[in-house]
């Protein structure tokens, strides 16, 4: 790598994604980005961890080539990592897709191995989201939480602790503030 970055920090795609030149995105053909998503430096996305276990119904088959699916207006802070979750099933180890909807913020140095993250989810810094966790819409996970594997977090939950548990509810007035369009617009390409 050269010492100086002559171009901007971010590569901008046709759909408005801003992907840091210093991020590590592996297996790009298996990753879907919905658009207007920001990927900061040192973020790791493991698109190479593809499902190897054959899907039972044919409609799922084409989905097999997707390891990580990300919606619109997501924000992945410096040094966070997205890994599709994996498990042994009938004696065979396989990864399964990691799906992330819209307006999802992931704080610095957090590790995500969820099966599903809904829309308007705010994940703090240094959080671990365990394998196959399911996080519904409008959830806030506070800094340093460890969400145990298989945990289901219902909508409007505030979650914290190791292991994480629901510690509060998202107030009615907090809902609007979880939209990330403003955050996206504020990202310059310096």
């Amino acid at each position: 790598m050269s010492k100086k970055q002559p171009k901007g920090e971010y590569i901008e795609t046709d759909t408005g994604n801003k992907v840091s030149r210093r991020s590590q995105i592996i297996g790009t053909t298996n990753i879907i980005l919905g658009g207007k998503t920001v990927i900061q430096a040192e973020v790791i996305i493991r698109g190479d961890l593809l499902r190897t276990y054959p899907a039972s119904n044919p409609s799922e088959k084409q989905g097999n080539t997707v390891a990580v699916a990300i919606g619109r207006y997501c924000f992945f802070s410096r040094g966070c990592e997205l890994r599709p979750p994996g498990k042994l099933y009938k004696g065979q180890f396989s990864h399964y897709p990691l799906k992330i909807a819209d307006h999802v913020f992931v704080g610095p140095s957090s590790i995500i191995e969820a099966a599903l993250i809904g829309s308007h989810v705010n994940i703090g810094s240094n959080v671990v989201v365990g394998k196959f966790a399911i996080i519904k819409d409008y959830v806030r996970i506070l800094d340093g939480s460890v969400v145990p594997p298989n945990m289901v977090i219902p909508s409007f939950s505030v979650v914290a602790g190791r292991p994480a548990r629901v510690v509060g509810e998202i107030a009615e007035g907090e809902v609007d503030g979880m939209d990330l369009r403003e955050v996206y617009r504020a990202v310059g390409n310096g």
């Binding site: 498990k87 042994l88 099933y89 009938k90 004696g91 196959f132 594997p149 298989n150």
Partner: peptide
């Protein structure tokens, strides 16, 4: 099942 099995759905 294999001891490492995680999923409940299976």
């Amino acid at each position: 099942a294999p001891p490492e099995g995680l999923g409940a759905e299976l």
